[in-house]
Design a protein around this nucleic acid. Structure first.
Lengths: 168, 168
DNA sequence: TCCAAATGCTTGACATGTCAACTACTAGGA
DNA sequence: TCCTAGTAGTTGACATGTCAAGCATTTGGA
């Protein structure tokens, strides 16, 4: 009897340098990101809502088709539908039917929404500066941007490296 | 009438380099981390469970007091109580009363749990290598570790920089 | 000794995320 | 025209996260 299963390659454990980088990343995710959420929550917003505001504010006419908005803000359509509701109720986002495609809807950041974003954005960016960039020297920031953009580009340009996502 | 409120300082917007770094970080969080979760979920585990396994496997006697485990794995005690239940039911973690302090309980990674971790860990580390470190040169990895550990140390050593956390 | 405060953990209610239907509409070919 | 497949968005059930309240125990000081 021969074993026709492929032999498992030895695991590629993280070396010391990689472990250092990985632990730092975990610290950011487990401590800094919850801090950003607390600041937003103090103003009755979730991170989801900030992402919606940010994506719409950068779009032409502050308007995006809902599916484009979901893509641009990195969330599922379902989640968008659930969470955008409160923004519409508050009058900070308006949703209108698309005249050209009766399946589609467009979301627009209203003036009230823009005002809201202008209040929150400085608080959010201050959090990011304080927890992420303040401890770094300019050289470290440059090196971080280089590495991060390399990783980010690689992930976005190689979706085949990802497991199939359920429901999408 | 004089305005006695302090003037708002100008927001410290991100410069181009910082934006590059920030977008990369968001890409990692929104794409790579969900990928890690999908791999774990294919083996009936949540990230929470992996963190529990990892923390216990590194502890003396593979055992930690529950409150130490919650700290070490960066989660609230409440969340730990809720999510560790299934691991106990599966026999992968054992919980025993602490003989010295009758308030406390100790969690131990069982042999079955260790076997489980030895199955999953290579898959997880392969995900991390593939999505985070593979695109980087050795020099980029070194620079990333330097910046990340600087940020991580800063966050962990300056808890006064964080808003008060509810419930803790 | 007593008691108030702190600690360790659990519980349950509610908020949010996820996922698989589902409806409605559009596109494109027989 | 009629199908079939694909696309846009919604819905509801369930899984998970969050938070405040609660119980039991320990600590430390009056």
């Amino acid at each position: 009897m021969t074993d026709d299963t492929a032999p498992e390659p030895a695991p590629r454990w993280l070396d010391a340098t990689q472990q250092t980088a990985w632990r730092g990343l975990l610290a950011i995710v487990s401590r800094a990101f919850p801090e950003f959420e607390r600041t937003l929550k103090a103003h009755d917003l979730l991170t989801v809502h900030y992402q919606i505001f940010a994506a719409l504010s950068e779009a032409p006419d502050r308007t995006l088709r809902l599916s484009e908005l979901a893509d641009g803000a990195d969330m599922s359509q379902s989640r968008l539908t659930h969470r955008i509701r409160v923004l519409v109720e508050r009058g900070e986002v308006a949703i209108t039917a698309d005249p050209d495609d009766r399946r589609a809807k467009n979301a627009t950041l209203t003036d009230a929404g823009m005002t809201r974003l202008e209040t929150i954005a400085p608080l959010h960016v201050e959090d990011v500066q304080r927890l992420i960039f303040d401890p770094l020297t300019p050289e470290q920031t440059t090196a971080l941007a280089d590495a991060m953009s390399t990783i980010g580009d690689h992930i976005c340009q190689h979706p085949e490296y990802l497991n199939p996502r359920p429901g999408s």
